[in-house]
Design a protein around this nucleic acid. Structure first.
Length: 815
RNA sequence: GCCGAAGUGGCGGAAAGGCAGACGCGCUACGUUCAGGGCGUAGUGUCCUUAAGGACGUGAGGGUUCAAAUCCCUCCUUCGGCACCA
């Protein structure tokens, strides 16, 4: 009896040999087509759980498959290493964030290596090391000089738990912190922003990207483009310096229905527009608004609130004076922070009008309108009425006519508004890339000269639960000299959002050794863009949007030569455990290590792919793992025990060859489509068939050997260690992973015989094994002459016979 | 409220509009010098039937079609995203 399959042993053996032989190292090679297969790098939380394996294994299989197909494949791995948990660990356990992170990386790298992936570890990127964050800072300076980074005072999202500001994209659900789930509050702060809004329009364009539809939709909604017009309403009170207030509307055709005017409570003109007799009420309302959380304020369906300022403004179209109110449903951050209220044609405005007994005037008539007051806001298009010279036009005509008039009279213009806000990148924390700016009393805000980079994090900062950045209290860091006047100056103590670090890591992988630039331009041009990017969908409007923005900005600076970083994107689903998403806080994390020790990495990889479609995720289940493990054991004995032919027959050999080519075809197609579950099923089906044939010795020895070697090649991406071991044991030369992917013969992959299904009135009544080449006439003839068919159609009128080549004959009879 | 994805045996899941349930788990029976979560063979959607065979069956209800898990309409459930954006 041959030796038993002991995964632990062979996996260790081959991992060491592959590493010693450097077979996973890749070099640029202009003679071969390149393939850049990238998986989102993990955060350095400490351990890899099976959720990480679920993300990494299939993409490794894909990279291996592409390698065997002859591509020069870059499949790198690294660590997203800055961030809050490291700092929290420092506060809690007194360990320095750097030490905590490095310790975690060492452990995670070891776990990664046990997976047997083709990562080229020479290209590892770690974002918290100075040789990396030097370039994150360098990019910041480039953005600053290009006018894409600016400092501004703004009401920002503040997480009281994390003690830092957050970007809009990092506020999720009912206004909670994306990291810790704490409700976010607003704070007025001076912060650094990246001008992502400059690229709003271009970020809407996914036309050349092979991305999941839902991610494209999420990004489009996030950017939130609205077309309309800006209209200036004239202030009645001539003593106010600013003579007018602009509103944004998507419905300029409804302007004659504007019966009142709304401002956000935060609007800067509110104090000036408030008359003395309304001041008390207005102040009280503003104070009440301030007490609302962002979520409470913007929750849909809540009762309208507001206050009258006592003053009026004039509608330029009809010269009508309308009262100015403030209300919290007008957002200071969208459009102009001011709205012309058209209650007849906007649900929110109608609610407001009803609550405060303000007039409602229909100006767009629905079809068949007879002049009565409408019970609901009519928001569709219709015929304009009560609109002066524009009455009688359709909404669409009126839209154009009014816009033309606005532009002619300089009362306003056509305009586009986006929901997207600029990206707030300042974080009041230690463990991030310091923002390389200096504040000088004499010279103002001065960028750190490029040659002085990196601005290093001071190793001796103290970590205390003060809620403020340790950098702020680190005198050796804060105090510096002004690069311009050499006088005393202070450093910016905020660090950058870690999403800045992850917005360019895919560029660094191409040449992580480069010391004089963020990346080597030639190598970058060879590898980029990424051909296949895989990761979780939770990054739809964060990382994936930021990285696209980064690339567009770099392109405009002449640093990269492409428009989009990720040509094809695929989002895998989530692995759940006892009904919940796996997470440390839930305590339901499953570590792969014990399973790897028990059944081997190949079985764990195979099982994760077999669970179901990759994009759907699924539940981790030990019993399912057993199935794959048993299969690999059967594969082991299939290939390691001797084969001897006994009752060779030509028909079986033909069928055997056909199944082999069909399997190659299916496995190849499934890998291209990233359908790993059915790919594994095809492999199982073929190995089951091989076992059956082996038992009876029905094919000749050479054909058997060919089938085994082809099977091992198809298995190699999925179970790289086992395939390598069996490749060696069946007398092939090292290494299976440098072999070409098997080709299939189109003719042999086709079925020779097919099962023709015979239906009567669409119901299955008989089956027929026929040659695939059968003609329509023959098929119908055969079907109609079957005894069982005759019994059904006897005495009935035959109305139709439908023939679908290679599939079905449907006989339609009248009863 | 809006947008998106999904709903198929006891379970995970397969099915270019054309044999529903591939593959795997579980279960049943039998076999095995098999003490274990081992291996092999056969079976396994539900109901009727000794059998041959038949009826029913892909969240619910309609529709299109010779033919629907698949396409269309209405609704229900679950999960994700957005959420007063003028």
């Amino acid at each position: 009896m041959a030796q038993k399959y002991s995964p632990h042993e062979i996996e260790r053996k081959w991992q060491h040999k592959w590493a010693a032989d450097h077979i996973h190292e890749v070099k640029e090679d202009s003679k071969r087509p390149k393939f850049y297969a990238l998986t989102m790098f993990p955060y350095t939380s400490g351990d890899l759980h099976v959720g990480h394996w679920y993300a990494m294994s299939p993409s490794d299989v894909c990279a291996r498959f592409k390698r065997m197909q002859g591509y020069n494949v870059l499949h790198p791995m690294g660590f997203d290493a800055f961030g809050l948990p490291a700092e929290n660990a420092a506060i809690k356990h007194g360990i320095h964030p750097y030490d905590w992170t490095v310790k975690n990386i060492d452990n995670m790298r070891r776990q990664f290596k046990s997976m047997g992936a083709v990562y080229d570890w020479n290209r590892e990127v770690i974002t918290c090391l100075p040789e990396y964050y030097k370039w994150t800072q360098w990019f910041f300076l480039r953005f600053y000089h290009a006018g894409l980074a600016y400092r501004a005072k703004a009401p920002v999202n503040w997480c009281p738990e994390c003690q830092t500001v957050l970007a809009n994209e990092q506020v999720v659900g009912e206004g909670s912190c994306e990291r810790c789930g704490t409700p976010v509050t607003k704070k007025e702060l001076e912060q650094w922003f990246f001008r992502i809004t400059k690229y709003a329009e271009e970020l809407l364009d996914h036309s050349r990207l092979d991305w999941p539809e839902r991610i494209k939709i999420m990004q489009r909604n996030w950017v939130g483009k609205s077309e309309g017009a800006e209209i200036s309403f004239r202030l009645e009170d001539a003593s106010i310096k600013q003579r007018e207030i602009k509103v944004f509307t998507t419905r300029p055709d409804t302007v004659f229905g504007a019966t009142f005017f709304l401002l956000a409570p935060e609007h800067p003109l509110v104090p000036q527009l408030t008359t003395p007799e309304h001041k008390a009420e207005v102040d009280e309302y503003i104070a009440w608004c301030r007490r609302q959380t962002e979520y409470e304020r913007t929750a849909i369906g809540r009762e309208k609130t507001g206050a009258f300022l006592g003053s009026y403004i004039v509608n330029p179209l009809n010269g009508e004076r309308v009262p100015i109110w403030i209300t919290d449903y007008v957002l200071p951050t969208y459009g102009t922070g001011a709205v012309m209220a058209v209650p007849a044609h906007d649900e929110r405005d109608l609610e407001f009008a009803r609550k405060f007994e303000l007039p409602v005037r229909t100006v767009i008539a629905p079809l068949g309108w007879t002049g009565e007051e409408l019970s609901e806001a009519y928001t569709d298009s219709g015929t304009m009425v009560n609109s002066g010279e524009f009455s009688g036009l359709t909404s669409e005509q009126g839209y154009e006519a009014i816009c033309n008039l606005l532009e002619e009279k300089r009362w306003g213009k056509r305009t586009i508004t986006y929901r997207l806000r600029d990206w707030l990148i300042s974080r009041q924390r230690y463990w991030g890339a310091p923002i390389p700016m200096i504040y000088c009393d004499k010279c103002g805000i001065i960028p750190v000269p490029e040659e002085d980079l990196p601005v290093l994090l001071p190793p001796d900062a103290e970590f205390k639960p003060t809620g403020e950045s340790p950098l702020k209290y680190c005198q050796s860091f804060v105090n510096t000299t002004c690069p311009k006047c050499s006088g005393t100056a202070k450093r910016e103590t905020d660090t950058m959002d870690t999403f800045v670090c992850s917005s360019w890591y895919f560029l660094r992988y191409t040449s992580p050794e480069t010391g004089d630039a963020p990346f080597n331009a030639d190598k970058m041009r060879y590898w980029l863009p990424v051909d296949l990017y895989t990761g979780g969908a939770e990054h739809a409007v964060m990382h994936l949007l930021y990285a696209r923005f980064f690339v567009k900005a770099l392109r405009d600076m002449g640093l990269v030569n492409f428009d989009e970083p990720f040509s094809r994107l695929f989002n895998q689903g989530t692995i759940i455990c006892s009904g919940d998403k796996m997470s440390k806080s839930r305590g339901n994390v499953i570590a792969p290590d014990e399973y790897v020790a028990e059944v081997g990495a190949d079985a764990v990889r195979g099982y994760l792919m077999f669970i179901g479609p990759w994009e759907l995720g699924g539940e981790w289940n030990d019993r399912g793992l057993v199935g794959v493990s048993r299969w690999l054991n059967r594969v082991w004995s299939l290939a390691t025990t001797d084969y001897s032919s006994r009752v060779v027959d030509l028909e079986t050999e033909k069928e055997f060859l056909h199944l082999m080519h069909k399997t190659i075809k299916e496995v190849t197609a499934d890998l291209e489509r990233l359908r790993f579950n059915t790919m594994v099923a095809s492999l199982m089906e073929f190995s089951n068939y091989l076992s059956k044939v082996k038992e009876r010795g029905m094919v000749c020895d050479s054909l058997w050997r060919e089938a085994i070697s082809h099977f091992l090649l198809l298995l190699a991406p999925t179970a790289p260690h086992l395939a390598e071991e069996l490749w060696a044991r069946t007398g092939h030369s090292y290494t299976i992973h440098n072999q070409p992917w098997p080709e299939y013969d189109q003719e042999l992959a086709k079925e020779e015989e097919i099962t023709l299904v015979i239906q009567i009135n669409g119901k299955l009544r008989d089956k027929l094994l026929v040659p695939a080449s059968i003609s329509e006439a023959e098929a119908k003839e055969l079907a109609l002459n079957r005894e069982r068919v005759k019994a059904y159609i006897d005495g009935k009128k035959l109305t139709r016979v439908i023939y679908v080549p290679r599939r079905v004959v449907n006989i339609v009879v009248a009863s």
